[in-house]
Design a protein around this nucleic acid. Structure first.
Length: 423
RNA sequence: GGAGAGAUGGCAGAGCGGUUUAAUGCGGCGGUCUUGAAAACCGUUGAGGGUUACACCUCCGGGGGUUCGAAUCCCUCUCUCUCCGCCA
């Protein structure tokens, strides 16, 4: 949610930014918000004045009653009726404006950073850098969905029996490799100064709103209606919401949290080509890094997070590239997003394994996440997050890229965690 | 699942129809004192809206009601805690 004062002060820049994101009717929406804001303020000013009058009157009546001047008190009471109806009308007008304003405001996406490239689709994303050599596979190389059967490390049919499609069952070395990656990713984050968090994987509606999943994107989350709880699509939701309605002191900053959770996504309507095997799942594991930063530091933090993720990929020996997403392809809440993609050699495709974003104060505005500066003034903070990393596609690339006649080689860095070096 | 209790400012905790513009304590901040610190003492210290700045308005879990006036009374919802039951 864009803060209203920001909209007021940057009307033209916001409209331009929304257009970059291909938001329809950007100018009308912004003008609409601003005029509703004006309407709300006008109504509130009148309401405040009316309330001030009736407060004064009530105080007078109290004083008269105390002084035993009953008749004068009764006379004063007669004056309150009109003030009351007036206040009621104004209150209604104010609420209507406020409600309409909110309804419109929450539909506005974040404004992209100036470095975000123009463009509409994934094809318009900018390749920032590419690292590592594309591996040459041996003649008998196959995609990961064949490898997992061959070595019996993941069973999709069993998952279908237990839950449904997109819920894999990891077995034997497959399960141990999962656990190894989670621990490796967590340890790397701890070494980089992050604090480990184990959050709930079900969240309430307020949390879904705080990070921008609600309203509107309900369809992407699993929902438990009896309890009004959503299964998290990412650890970003619970970990960022730890800071909902929080005012931090400068000494608390920056906040650097990391958490491992399973993630649940309905992916309604998202199935089609290119979703075989591990490429798209309803449940998957992810280690997520979340940061809360002073506005002036947030872009340095974003670069640092990007570097951290790249470090992981380098240690795993996976060829990767970094994309700066174009306006049309970035998320609703993001101001700047880097996607990290690894090359999955047997599929011959780049797979997205991480998305690192700066939300600036878009989430903070919904969360009411603020800090108190030296002058004791409160102002909004910036939030960021990134996958470090999402497991399934990393696994897919590892299996495909490291296969040979003799089996699949486990990267050095994972061996202390797996206890084996070959599948 | 059953029974009971409760929700007040960063925390603890009074207030139960009219100077509550929410007492008091702790914590935080500033000062006095001190070589420095601690202690003590003095002052200060919630959030949001609004204003150039004041004024002013709202907020005592959410919503509604009674009243000239509600933290205080009534209705309703939500959540939390305790005990019992079940259970990892």
């Amino acid at each position: 949610m864009l803060p209203i004062p920001y909209l007021r002060d940057n009307r033209e820049a916001v409209i331009k930014g929304l257009r970059k994101k291909h938001f329809a009717n950007a100018a009308e929406a912004v003008e609409g918000v601003l005029s509703l804001d004006q309407r709300r303020r006008d109504a509130q000013t009148q309401l405040d004045n009316t309330l001030a009058q009736s407060n004064n009157l009530a105080r007078e009546i109290g004083a008269l009653m105390k002084a035993g001047k009953k008749e004068e008190a009764e006379a004063a009471k007669d004056q309150t009726a009109s003030l009351k109806t007036q206040a009621k009308e104004l209150d209604e007008a104010m609420r209507n404006a406020e409600e309409e304003l909110q309804r419109l405001l929450v539909t506005l996406p974040n404004v992209p950073h100036s470095s975000v490239p123009e463009g509409r689709t994934a094809g318009d994303n900018e390749v920032v850098l590419q690292h590592g050599d594309i591996p040459q596979l041996y003649a008998g190389a196959v995609p990961h969905w064949d490898l997992i059967k061959k070595y019996d490390i993941i069973d999709f049919e069993l998952g279908v029996k237990i839950a449904g499609s997109g819920f894999p069952v990891y077995k034997g070395k497959g399960a141990r490799l999962q656990r190894a990656m989670i621990n490796f990713f967590l340890d790397e984050a701890l070494n980089a100064g992050y604090t480990e968090i184990q959050p709930p994987v079900l969240v309430n509606e307020a949390s879904g709103f705080g990070t921008g999943q609600l309203p509107d994107k309900e369809g992407q989350m699993y929902f438990a209606p009896e309890d009004g709880l959503y299964l998290i699509p990412t650890a970003e939701v619970p970990i960022t919401n730890l800071y909902r309605d929080v005012i931090l002191e400068p000494k608390d900053l920056p906040v650097k949290n990391v958490g491992y959770t399973p993630c649940f996504r309905r992916e309604a309507g998202a199935w089609g080509a290119h979703v075989r095997g591990l490429n798209r799942l309803h449940q998957f594991d992810k280690v997520e890094i979340v940061r809360v930063e002073l506005p002036e530091n947030s872009y340095a933090a974003l670069e640092e997070m990007s570097g951290h993720v790249q470090g992981l990929l380098q240690k795993l020996g996976l060829p990767y590239r970094v994309l700066r997403l174009c306006g049309g392809d970035m998320g609703f809440a993001s101001a700047l997003t880097y996607d990290m993609e690894v090359y999955s050699a047997a599929q011959g495709r780049w797979l997205e394994v991480s998305s690192v974003s700066n939300f600036e104060f878009f989430q903070a505005s919904r969360l009411k996440l603020r800090y108190r500066d030296e002058n004791k003034k409160t102002s909004l903070l910036h939030t960021l997050n990134g996958s470090a990393l999402a497991l399934p596609r990393i696994l897919a690339a590892l299996l495909e890229n490291n296969q040979s006649e003799n089996g699949i080689t486990i990267p050095e860095v994972l061996r202390p965690y797996t206890g084996f070096d070959q599948i």
